[in-house]
Design a protein around this nucleic acid. Sequence first.
DNA 1: TTAAAATGAGACATCGACGTCTCATTTGGT
DNA 2: ACCAAATGAGACGTCGATGTCTCATTTTAA
Lengths: 181, 181
Amino acid sequence: MAMDRDQVLRAAAALLSRKSTATMDEVARAAGIGRATLHRHFAGRDALVRALEDLGIREFEQALDRARLGEDTAVQALRRLVAESEANAQLLAFLVTENQLFEGDQVNEGWARLDARVSALFRRGQAEGDIRIDLSPAWLTEALYGLIGTCAWAVMDGRVAAKDFHHMITELLLGGAQRKR
Amino acid sequence: MAMDRDQVLRAAAALLSRKSTATMDEVARAAGIGRATLHRHFAGRDALVRALEDLGIREFEQALDRARLGEDTAVQALRRLVAESEANAQLLAFLVTENQLFEGDQVNEGWARLDARVSALFRRGQAEGDIRIDLSPAWLTEALYGLIGTCAWAVMDGRVAAKDFHHMITELLLGGAQRKR
DNA sequence: TTAAAATGAGACATCGACGTCTCATTTGGT
DNA sequence: ACCAAATGAGACGTCGATGTCTCATTTTAA
């Protein structure tokens, strides 16, 4: 069973986001390929994780592009961003929890670039009066990542329906759980 | 340097929540004890993780007790819960991300009990008209865990001030990021 | 002070995952 | 139909983490 390199990476992300200590053999079986083939694609475990980082950063950056964060209100742009992120939620969930490993890498630069764009969105929303100013852009950025990852896990575990992904995240993040009356 | 068993566990949680693949030797050094002593406390790595699970469930259960979830409004009770959880946020962050491993264990029962209490809180809030009904209690429960873990990481990384822990979580979870006008 | 218990440092064997390799088989292009 | 490339399965050797052990030293209690 032949699989595209990206398909392998997505399968790896889905597995590793749940079990970060999964064996290379488990990753290979999860991707439906042999361990030898996995090693032909990625020199080793480090290379696999690095590839996941690269893919995640690339995909999320494209999601940021597609969401056109500069247009409309920040709130509307944020809704678009969540929608665009849904396809790569598992990948994001893995990277968010695995960020721990980064130490002086260039990968950090990639994340710093993404963080800057997302927090700029929140800052714009604050400047335009649409976003609360008592919640720092840095925290809102982290919370967005966290909620996307949490929701991806909840969907994987069947605690949240996949079709509710966008609504659960955006409504909680933007509107909060408290009912207004 | 002698350390209490609980102190060792907390040090282990702080390290493992950031680097889940940390060596037993690293855990020992992080706790300020020798590797042999660590093995005297916990038969092995599995036993250590199991002990962390037990401690986390016990601590969080006590936090639920102290928060008196049945009193006042659900919103006020939730604020108390976040305040009571702050001391064990790192431990919670570790367990939330490591939950992946659970498979037919009895540990699941402990979490199921906690989940039931927390989601019951949200359900009460919905019944009393204080919590939105379009966000499921299961999702709100997961989101609470996720935000606590995310904020714990953000504090560890210095992206959020420790003193803002309670405010950032409760305000975002309850009120949302969008400014009302 | 003295004896018992606990600790830290290190040596040691074991075990599992990793990475490389080979070879038969399958796939895909011509 | 044919050939080249890719794949899967498995067999190795290597390496690092683990868990056990010993022993000198420190801590604790009597």
